[in-house]
Computed example of a mutant assay.
Amino acid sequence: MPPLSPVSPVSPASVVAALRAAGCVFAEDEARLILSAARTPDEVAAMVDRRVEGLPLELVVGHAEFRGLRIALEPGVFVPRRRTEFLVEQALAHAPDASSVVVDLCCGSGAVGAALAAALGQVELHAADIDPAATRCARRNVAAYGGHVHTGDLFAALPGELRGRVDILAANVPYVPTDEVGLLPAEAREHEPLVALDGGADGLDVLREVAAAAPDWLAPGGCLLVETSERQLPSAVEAFKSAGLDTQVAYSEELYANVVIGVGAAGAVRS
């Protein structure tokens, strides 16, 4: 591991010590990221203070790494999780051969849409979220791919012309049950928007709404993909099947990630 690059007169060792004292398990790695992101010693000090106060590291440095991309972040925006890279992998594996319209629903920072567009090449990309802070951030992240960003509640945010044309519909919906939001790590419950976490009584309110409406928006053979927890899988699969989607589940042991995949009429789930 290469040594930390000093930002004079701030000592890398002092940054590591401050982060370690605050309970940051990967203090040296975090210090390296802070030192590389800061432009002045005062910025280093401010970033360390924010991290010590519990702000997620990604929000401290202003970006997250996601499938090799640097995703710009702002305070109050959901931080993309590494496990969600599995949702992107499954979308790519199950995409129709001639994917042209991609929608990132509940887009947050737009990380999923950006990653899909980066991998697929020329696509018509749309990202949507109910939170204006999220869509403001998403615009920065999908601009390089010509992405269109919309603010509104689920499908109501999308242009009507997309109905029946969506090849990949990736929806990283909130799926934490309301009673369990308070059990989340402080970084999430104190610094990320509740609307991006709380999925209702059993965590599946938004998933059910998305699954029920998706067939009207999917192109023939188009694919809906949603991340959820292992214990929610049976109910999530039932919601997909009730909507008439040809459904399967994918699981990553490494990332502890679960993705429900549903293909619309005239399509078949690929194995």
Rank of each mutant, 00 (worst) to 15 (best):
H126G: 12
R208L: 00
G110D: 03
L116R: 06
P96F: 12
L204G: 02
R140F: 03
G108F: 05
H126W: 13
P159K: 11
P132H: 08
D129F: 06
P96A: 11
A115I: 01
V166S: 03
R140N: 02
L207W: 00
Y145C: 00
A117D: 07
S99N: 01
A111R: 00
L207K: 00
N172Y: 07
E187V: 11
P132E: 10
H148E: 14
D129Q: 09
E180V: 09
A95W: 09
A171E: 02
H94N: 15
A134G: 13
E192H: 12
L158T: 00
A119F: 04
G164T: 03
G160R: 14
L207E: 03
D131S: 15
E124Q: 15
A118C: 13
V101L: 08
H191G: 12
V195G: 11
D131L: 12
A138R: 09
A188V: 15
L162R: 03
D198S: 06
E187P: 09
S109Q: 02
N141S: 12
V206Q: 09
P177M: 10
G121R: 07
D202L: 02
A170S: 13
C107M: 13
L158K: 05
G200E: 10
A115D: 05
R165D: 11
D131H: 13
D129S: 08
A128E: 08
C106A: 11
D97T: 14
F155T: 00
E124T: 14
P193F: 08
P132G: 07
G110R: 02
A156H: 15
T135H: 03
L204T: 06
L92R: 12
D179I: 14
A119Y: 04
A98W: 10
S100C: 13
E161I: 05
L169I: 11
H94M: 10
G160Q: 14
L184T: 08
V112G: 00
G146A: 14
S109G: 02
G147S: 07
N172D: 15
Y175H: 12
R208P: 01
E190I: 02
G146H: 13
P177A: 12
L116S: 04
A144V: 14
H148I: 04
T178P: 07
N141P: 10
G182R: 11
I168D: 01
G164E: 08
T151L: 02
I168W: 05
D104T: 01
V173Y: 01
L162E: 06
L207M: 13
